[in-house]
Design a protein around this nucleic acid. Structure first.
Lengths: 316, 316
DNA sequence: CTGTTAGCGCTTTCAT
DNA sequence: ATGAAAGCGCTAACAG
């Protein structure tokens, strides 16, 4: 049925130990022996049983990723890259989504911890204590969350806001609303509004308040909200970008499909996933010990404003 | 370091076999012995090593899912439900995406096969031969693909098209374009156009051809294309739905956010994922043998038209 | 009902 | 450079 190392050994006229070595530490066997083993293995279609290997090496060859919501393209963008990077290093990946429930997340983390060599936690809802504790027993990399002693990758949201501000200033705006923000800007009169639900409906709601505040631009918390803002503005007959400019965040697929196309801030989803997975791989290959420089690595990935039709110069 | 069944055995003053039984076949040990074991296990924070267990039982407790693209909300919708259903049955899930590459898909399937008890293949690009072969060695469930002898779950696209046709007929339409389709309808003069790329640009392109064909409604292949169609129509000053009605497929998040909101066909993503995973679980619990009724189960899930603002009565 | 024993498939000393 | 043998942590006969 299932073909084992013993079958290969028999076929290659060597011991199982030699087969094992030929496969994992090629330089420990004579070249011709090795090729004999390799041939036999190929002919038999042999693939080592990872579970058995893991039992003895203590490593599983798997990593896990837990995200708050698999339906959110933000996280699946990260997931895709994590998977790809992990595959490069020959790791398979377990997924789990917590549905934004910290209790569920804690359970998932614990359950996965047994079957993986490391974990990527996206926007974790766990308490820092819990996180620190978990980090003690498994290799952890945090995405969009920072914690002393734990490697992390974060996307520079603030940097994105600054780019948006600079863009608006250049267009002549002087008074802008920021939805769900707590930002300030020397060159701008910013009105922080909210919090609103970070959804389409929240945008609908926020639009009226922003208008009442007498701004010429609205910086939404994310693309979905921005779409809501634009819809409400359209209903009220307010022209975008002629009368009011609107910006989003995330650069989801539909940002470019909206009318007008949405000026937004692109998040380095793929880079983040790749980086996080890379950190994890590196950490796992290095073994349990400390970090290379003594410090837990911490990468901040730049975001990038993407200018489209929803922002324009202030009407003179 | 890592705590094993032996630690529990020692602490509970029983043999390892008893511990094993107390955990997997509770009714094979006396109640008080069992509770002693359970207490010891809890106090020690013991969790059986699944790899070791798998080595002997031949089961891993994992399932795998391979999708063509993790960035596509269509597949992540399915993935989410598959994960949830699998978790219910205490299976963890491995993900892989093939990036629409059949060669990669074949590799992934082969690699995963070793570490899982079963596989869900979403819209597989593999040849039927390859599929059949794989089905021979692993439990397989196909999503949106049918193959004799292999369990499958499919979403009823054709049924959705029929609902759209009926809807359009009721609105008085007599001549409609179907993009990338090969459909017919007794009550309707259908013009099959295409194929076009199933993307926004494809919609842009198709819109002009549809208009030239003199139709009063355009049935797009999916939501993204429908958005492209609407954008092009708007640019040409053609009113939707006043002059032309437009429909999509999939009910992606932004279908309801478009202007006008898009009439589309909702796909039972979650139900499909749940069903597929459920089939797999059932098949795995049943052991290697044949199927319950002798036949491989085959479920067709209904789709549902969702009527919004992009369709309207033909102008008298 | 419980304990003893023999492996699952693999890696890794320890000899040779 | 290679082989023999000892397990990794667990479950499944087989006795008792």
């Amino acid at each position: 049925m299932t073909i084992t190392i013993r079958d290969v050994a028999r076929k290659a006229h060597v011991s199982v130990a030699t087969v094992s070595r030929a496969l994992s530490s090629p330089d420990l066997v004579r070249p011709d022996t090795r090729s004999r083993v390799l041939t036999a293995a190929t002919e038999l279609g042999y693939h080592p049983n990872r579970a058995a290997r893991g039992l003895i090496t203590g490593k599983t060859g798997n990593i896990g990723i837990v995200v708050p919501d698999l339906d959110n393209p933000f996280f699946t963008g990260v997931l895709k890259a994590v998977r790809a990077r992990a595959a490069q290093a020959d790791y398979a990946v377990f997924v789990a989504d917590s549905d934004d429930d910290p209790t569920a997340e804690a359970k998932l983390v614990q359950a996965m911890a047994k079957q993986v060599d490391g974990l990527v936690l996206c926007s974790p809802g766990l308490t820092d204590e819990h996180l620190a504790e978990t980090a003690g027993s498994t290799s952890l990399v945090l995405l969009n969350h920072e914690l002393a002693g734990v490697p992390s990758t974060v996307m520079d949201r603030r940097g994105g806001v600054e780019q948006v501000f600079a863009h608006l200033v250049a267009l002549g705006h002087r008074r802008v609303a920021v939805l769900n923000g707590t930002d300030r800007c020397a060159a701008l009169d910013v009105v922080n509004l909210g919090p609103f639900a970070p959804r389409y409906e929240g945008g609908l709601h926020a639009a009226d308040l922003a208008l009442a505040a007498g701004v010429t631009a609205i910086v939404a918390y994310n693309d979905v909200m921005a779409l809501g803002v634009m819809a409400r503005l359209r209903d009220r007959g307010v022209g975008v970008p002629d009368e009011v400019s609107v910006t989003g965040f995330d650069d989801l697929a539909y940002a470019s499909l909206a009318t007008p196309a949405l000026t937004t801030v692109g998040m380095p989803l793929a880079a983040a996933g790749r980086t996080a997975a890379g950190m994890l791989v590196e950490r796992m290959e290095l073994g349990g010990g400390g970090f290379v420089g003594g410090e837990a690595p911490r990468v901040v990935l730049p975001t990038q404003i993407i200018i489209r039709g929803s922002t324009g110069p202030v009407r003179g």
